[in-house]
């Protein structure tokens, strides 16, 4: 018996070791990048208007894309969680499509529907701007590649809300709208917020699709790429470190918000 127990411990040690290696694989490049950046170079990058503007642009476009898309994505997620319909699997597959296709290819595809010849492009033209090379175009590209994160998380969140609770609310006399806003949405809120954060974070880090839609104005991932191409590693690195820091900060802050929220819901 004792021997058997020791064997399991040994096996668990192996699992931990292998898992640890994977964690190291994620951490090592980031730490290496941080350790190779001097405080002076970081401070210089922080005071570089081009850098701060690009970070600001990245944050706002990604946030904007997330908020605008949430208006339709959350209802879609609800329908996917609750209703059975023909071709549902096809729709699910379609939603995951942006994750599996190369993002440069996604960029090319999006370009086709927002260029000046397209309907949305013409509509933007009447309003006096061109979607290509515009923050609105960047938002479209970001939204395209990051939407699955929101839809899938929200769908799972809705699916976890027992349908019984909705029936109970209806039985008490609640209209569908009241059931959705007062029962289902508050109960699925944690997953939806999680999805919003993931979509926002994924949008911020997008390069491939955005670079095809809008090289300028420059979002930070493109700025890093440009500095690396034009001036080399030592110029690109501080921007990269600062941007990773900003992403992490937002990620952690928003995660904490979700946790606070859920604690509030429970108590």
């Amino acid at each position: 018996m004792k021997k058997k127990r020791r064997q399991i411990e040994g096996f668990e040690l192996w699992l931990t070791l292998l898992g640890g290696l994977v964690l190291l694989f994620i951490l090592a490049p980031l730490l290496n990048m941080l350790l190779h950046s001097s405080p002076a170079s970081l401070s210089e990058a922080l005071h570089d208007r081009e850098v701060t503007d690009s970070i600001w642009l990245t944050l706002t476009t990604s946030m904007g894309a997330t908020m605008v898309m949430a208006v339709g994505a959350i209802p879609l997620a609800y329908v996917l969680a609750r209703r059975q319909f023909k071709l549902k699997r096809l729709v699910q597959g379609l939603i995951d499509l942006p994750v599996v296709i190369p993002h440069s290819a996604a960029g090319i595809a999006i370009l086709g529907i927002i260029s000046r010849q397209s309907l949305p492009g013409q509509a933007a033209g009447w309003l006096g701007f061109d979607l290509v090379g515009h923050p609105a175009g960047i938002m479209v590209a970001m939204a395209f590649v990051s939407l699955p994160f929101l839809i899938n998380a929200a769908r799972d969140g809705f699916a976890e809300v027992p349908e019984r609770l909705e029936h109970a609310a209806q039985n008490l006399g609640a209209k569908p709208r009241q059931v959705f806003f007062r029962i289902t949405l508050p109960l699925a809120w944690r997953s939806i917020l999680s999805g919003l954060i993931m979509m926002f974070a994924r949008g911020m880090s997008e390069f491939g699709a955005v670079v095809i839609i809008a090289y300028h104005p420059m979002i930070t991932p493109i700025l890093i790429y440009e500095r690396f191409g034009a001036f080399g590693l030592s110029y690109a690195r501080p921007v990269a470190v600062i941007f990773v820091g900003v992403c992490l900060l937002f990620f952690v802050l928003l995660r904490m918000l979700v946790k606070e929220r859920s604690r509030y819901v429970r108590s």
């Binding site: 027992p162 019984r164 609770l165 029936h167 109970a168 609310a169 039985n171 008490l172 029962i183 508050p186 109960l187 819901v265």
Partner: peptide, 12 residues
């Protein structure tokens, strides 16, 4: 008025 078998009190 239906009182379900499982707990259908709204947990939030």
């Amino acid at each position: 008025g239906l009182v379900f078998q499982d707990n259908t009190l709204f947990p939030h």
